[in-house]
Design a protein around this nucleic acid. Structure first.
Lengths: 316, 316
DNA sequence: CGGGCGCCTAAGCGATTGCTTATCGCCCAC
DNA sequence: GTGGGCGATAAGCAATCGCTTAGGCGCCCG
């Protein structure tokens, strides 16, 4: 019974799928399956069993989840306690949905780390569904994106969601559009578009856009670049597309109900279980420096540039 | 960072010595030293450091102890939870000081297991100093012997401690003896005699018997056999030596202050952290069956037979 | 009923674990 | 100054871990 095995088990139990657990851990799926098999044999209990939809816990598995989860939590706590006692730089692991990660998280963390002494921050991209699991299992300290239930959440930033297209797009000259008129369009989105728990994902699922008409780009910048080339319509963050709109490369479509006011949130464990760095970041978000950093990214990343779709990127 | 390493660390921290930890774990001392080295390197902290007397915790080590201890505890809890969910026989790990283990624990556990369904009981011999560590680290469920502070203790059995010798021993015909007159004798004892926290050990240290005059036998039976051969004096449990006294092989010495009334205790974690089998044994001790079993051992083990000095003996 | 999704097993690999015995090094006590 | 107690280190070994790729098997969905 190793901590790796317990972690794999907890993630499978919480995410309901070996596949998802493997993705979160950044390993192949047989690696997780193997860990599970070892644990099953060691304890002499199947722990989780396949069902038509997902995996189901056995009675033994149900008892094991909270225990194993706590053990994994304590392992992180142990490393953290020693790190702090040694005076080593603190670790801050942030995860965010792709759009937040792309534009807001990096400048925010830059501003935070430059003010709060030696901190080793890591930034990872994840889906809204995975985020609560990453936080409760202490694979991450802070999650940026939609508000999560069962965790502490606080509004972090307000933005205005619009729909944009290239200036030669068929709808670019329309005077007025109903939202439903966009259901048949080609939608160019980032990973958040494929995530039904984000604002953009919810928009697409409300419109019932067929899967075949959704093209997922590795970044929203890439989607906007494709939109500028007339390949379809894209969700846009008002202040981020402003410069491209000014230069005439993108046109905000006059869709009824837009711009939509949307809130991004910070999510973390309750204050008593939160790491000290996470608490400091939590408070930092109320300062003008944070606000300024989050909005500074308006035109700094040209539409044509985007970062590769790595699952977790390290940065110093 | 493996559970084995954490366990080794906790035991070293709690026992204040690598050696003692190795003995408790039943492995060689380099095994523990190696585990410690691996953990030290992984965490980048010495954790424990040598001092003139024993090992001292670094600040990091101090923070780690409770966390690591809890992790080890949870690991045991996990196995136990699964075992119970599976309906497998429950596990009851009993440790006792040597005298208790030799005469009382076995018949007691036999009576208990034969009444309380399928239980897999193990019996180990330990010192009074190690016992609280074994219990708090969940290496054992129940400890039989002297009353331990910081744990829940309950009187289990009262016995009368006497001093015996062979009938040809110089003191065998004395009409009256002061306790201090025995300080210069050769004392024949079991492991409990070398344990300053047991009644017998306390007696010897009160008398300031020099080390060279204490001969430790693998069992009290062996010590009595040697005493019968006139090799010295030995502590005796009144009702256990009764048959040898009747047959004239041993003589209880008329020492002032003896027989000494002594209590053996059951020790365990607080009721909330105690395993369910331990609780059942705890309650079983109040029954007449328990009392009867504990006293039944009076003559069943002839003086000449004794068990080898294994640290932990398994039995079914 | 075929295809594909999702889990499991197999095979193989390098690194680590966990243990041993033997030896060294330190420090205190005699 | 010199054992002896105690911890660290070395060397060596079998077993396990943790990961990979490749392929099989069950099952829902089209």
């Amino acid at each position: 019974m190793t901590l790796t095995q317990l972690e794999a088990f907890v993630l499978v139990a919480r995410l309901g799928s070996v596949r998802a657990a493997a993705r979160v851990l950044g390993v192949s799926e047989p690696a997780v399956s193997g860990a599970l098999a070892a644990l099953r044999q060691h304890l002499g209990d199947p722990l989780v069993e396949r069902t038509p939809r997902g995996m189901d816990l056995t009675p033994g598995g149900q008892r094991l989840v909270p225990i194993a989860s706590q053990m994994v939590n304590l392992a992180v706590e142990a490393e953290d306690a020693i790190r702090r006692a040694r005076g080593a730089p603190e670790l801050l692991r942030v995860v965010a949905t792709s759009t937040v990660a792309e534009y807001v998280a990096r400048p925010l963390l830059n501003a935070f780390t430059s003010r709060h002494g030696p901190i080793e921050a890591t930034l990872g991209v994840t889906t809204a569904a995975e985020m609560p699991v990453l936080l409760t299992e202490r694979l991450a300290d802070v999650g940026l994106g939609p508000s999560l239930t069962d965790l502490e959440a606080k509004p972090m930033m307000r933005y205005r969601l619009v729909v944009v297209a290239g200036k030669r797009h068929g709808l670019a000259r329309a005077a007025h559009l109903e939202l439903s008129a966009l259901a048949g369009q080609d939608w160019l989105v980032d990973a958040s578009g494929a995530d039904p728990a984000t604002e953009i994902g919810m928009l697409l699922s409300r419109l019932r856009v067929p899967e075949g008409r959704i093209r997922v780009f590795p970044s929203l910048s890439a989607a906007w670049a494709a939109a500028a080339d007339g390949e379809g319509v894209a969700p846009g963050v008002a202040h981020l597309v402003a410069s491209d709109v000014e230069r005439g490369r993108l046109v905000p479509l006059p869709v009824a109900g837009t711009p939509i006011d949307v809130l991004w949130h910070v999510n973390a464990l309750g204050a008593d279980r939160r790491s000290s760095v996470a608490t400091r970041l939590w408070r930092f978000l109320d300062t003008p420096h944070a606000m300024q950093a989050m909005h500074r990214a308006d035109g700094s990343l040209p539409v044509s540039r985007f970062r590769p779709p790595v699952y977790v990127t390290l940065w110093s």
